Amino acid sequence: HNLTITQGKLFFHYNPKLCLSEIHKMEEVSGTKGRQERNDIALKTNGDQASCENELLKFSYIRTSFDKILLRWEPYWPPDFRDLLGFMLFYKEAPYQNVTEFDGQDACGSNSWTVVDIDPPLRSNDPKSQNHPGWLMRGLKPWTQYAIFVKTLVTFSDERRTYGAKSDIIYVQTDATNPSVPLDPISVSNSSSQIILKWKPPSDPNGNITHYLVFWERQAEDSELFELDYCLKGLKLPSRTWSPPFESEDSQKHNQSEYEDSAGECCSCPKTDSQILKELEESSFRKTFEDYLHNVVFVPRKTSSGTGAEDPRPSRKRRSLGDVGNVTVAVPTVAAFPNTSSTSVPTSPEEHRPFEKVVNKESLVISGLRHFTGYRIELQACNQDTPEERCSVAAYVSARTMPEAKADDIVGPVTHEIFENNVVHLMWQEPKEPNGLIVLYEVSYRRYGDEELHLCVSRKHFALERGCRLRGLSPGNYSVRIRATSLAGNGSWTEPTYFYVTDYLDVPSNIA
């Protein structure tokens, strides 16, 4: 807008934040220059609390790290170098490059900038070799853009010569660093050979998330399962459950009422301010606690030095998902009996873990797994792929695949051998790939016309006998059925096997 004052003059007093240069501009645009008398524009009460600059400061050096910015700028000295009290560095987070010096300023003089007072450097006698002032900004957020400017702080001049310097606002972004852990990993099994893994992005990506790394490792069953005799009275049979499938998407929606109208769909109840505040506090606490764990609990591995020492970490090797089922080394339970199943799973520490690289999504279907087997899954978020990966501390989750139908069934015939004193040795093959492992066998036998009897055969007993022995049988026709019990439950009964026990007292003698 054009402003013209045809008559009258300007009068400025007691404006401590208004620089004289701005008042002189007002004289020019209003056409009143030359009308004012000496005392109409006070030299001592206008701009006496402001830094009124008329020179431009330029930054000469900028260096960044993930949490620091090192700045240096060209030296500046007023005509009387004693008038320079120091520099004021202003900075704040700036997602967009549209910041002005006066953003967030209120009537009390406060604003949204963080201000650092910096002492002037030592003055050199040689004007050509003056030290460049600077400042190291610490405690910054990774991968965050900051708006920065600097200006001088000078003393009051009796001659009211307006001098000083100020830089333009520059924008500097800190470097990326390792992201925080992925949030809320959930693993479920939808079949006997697959596990579905879902997660949420890290709360602090500290860069642009480029991919996720998912490692999985087959877990050995508890050692007590191999040692305890679950045929003993009072000892509860062990059981394991597989990871249940995901709930429906509708039930997972946030901010939804727990109660549904019987007449149909209901609208979600909005969260109160107290609920939102509580969630923010919980989120802040979780982030602080995660940072504490990362800094205190997890110790970084030592990389190899120039002395030739090897990095103890196993090298990563990509495998196809079809090879995942046989990740671990199978060892027989008892070496003397080769027909026992290889369900003991000690994992070799030198073995390469299978892994998958996930790009542009937060889910993965891990296939080719062994049925009813526990897996430990390790999830890392990465925001750099080359020249070397920059990934987060791992988040861990466990899951067990679903049982395989008929995996616990005894394959092959049940054979028998009759000894003296009416002892019958029953023999059968253990299931080759049971659900988890076989903890015991149930032997059901009966003599024709009598009630059915049951015998429990422990895992250890089966390994020693290759089956079991029935003792003290009365003469007669017998039928026997056997079924295995694994961590997933009972298998199917075998087809009945028949044998006849004679009275050993009636056996004919070869003595003449």
Rank of each mutant, 00 (worst) to 15 (best):
S239E: 06
S363M: 03
F298L: 15
V424C: 11
R286Q: 02
L505H: 05
K432F: 07
S248Q: 04
A381C: 01
T386L: 03
L426M: 04
E224A: 06
F246C: 15
G436T: 14
E310I: 04
V414C: 04
Q252W: 13
T241M: 09
D291L: 03
P245E: 03
G234I: 14
D222C: 10
Y259F: 05
L213Q: 10
V358L: 10
S257G: 04
E378A: 09
E404A: 04
Q219T: 04
Q252C: 12
V359R: 13
T502D: 07
N339C: 10
L487K: 15
E389Q: 13
D250F: 09
E258A: 07
K278A: 12
P387A: 12
A220E: 13
N510W: 14
R353S: 12
E362L: 10
R390W: 11
H254K: 15
S479R: 06
T241V: 15
R483Y: 03
D291W: 02
P354T: 11
G436R: 15
P431N: 09
A336M: 13
F289R: 01
D311F: 08
S458D: 04
E310Y: 15
F337L: 12
I482G: 01
G325V: 09
Y230P: 04
I410A: 15
D385K: 08
I209V: 06
S257R: 06
P346K: 07
M427P: 01
K271E: 03
V424I: 02
A399I: 02
E281F: 06
W242A: 03
L426S: 03
H254W: 07
D222Y: 04
G374F: 13
L464M: 11
S305D: 12
C266K: 11
F298T: 01
V359L: 09
E227W: 14
L379Y: 06
Y498G: 06
S509I: 15
G449I: 13
K460S: 11
L228F: 13
A405T: 10
A407R: 11
H454F: 00
K278S: 06
L235Q: 05
R218F: 04
I377A: 15
G472K: 07
Y292E: 02
I438G: 01
E452D: 15
A263P: 13
P332Y: 04
P349R: 15
V443G: 01
L505Q: 06
L473M: 05
C391R: 03
P508S: 12
E420Q: 03
V457F: 12
V457K: 06
G322P: 08
Y478H: 11
E217G: 11
A220N: 11
D506N: 14
K271L: 08
